[in-house]
C-alpha cells in the first residue's frame, strides 16, 4: 500500500511507548500494533484525531504517501 504510517517515528520523538499511547487514546494494543506495522487497511478520523491530540502532531507527520510503482521505475 502506498500510504505509510510513521507512528513509530513520531512515538520515538515523543518518547512514548505503544501500550502507553493505546491506553491514552482508548484503543487496544493489538489494534495500535496493526496500525504501527502498516497492516491496517483504513483509519477512522476519530482515531487519527486522538493520536494527533495525544502526540501533539499533524496527520501528515503520521501518514506519508509513498508511490511504490514510481520508486521501482526510477
Amino acid at each position: 500500500m502506498p500510504i505509510k504510517v510513521n507512528l513509530d517515528k513520531v512515538m520515538k520523538e515523543r518518547e512514548t511507548s505503544l501500550s502507553d499511547l493505546a491506553g491514552r487514546i482508548g484503543i487496544t494494543l493489538a489494534n495500535l500494533s496493526i496500525l504501527k506495522t502498516n497492516k491496517a487497511k483504513a483509519i477512522r478520523f476519530s482515531t487519527l484525531e486522538a493520536i494527533c491530540r495525544e502526540l501533539n502532531c499533524q496527520p501528515s507527520d503520521i501518514l506519508e504517501f509513498k508511490d511504490d510503482a514510481s520508486d521501482s521505475r526510477s
Partner: peptide, 8 residues
C-alpha cells in the same frame, strides 16, 4: 469483513 476488521 477483512477491511472492516483492519479499520483502526
Amino acid at each position: 469483513q477483512e477491511e472492516n476488521q483492519l479499520t483502526i
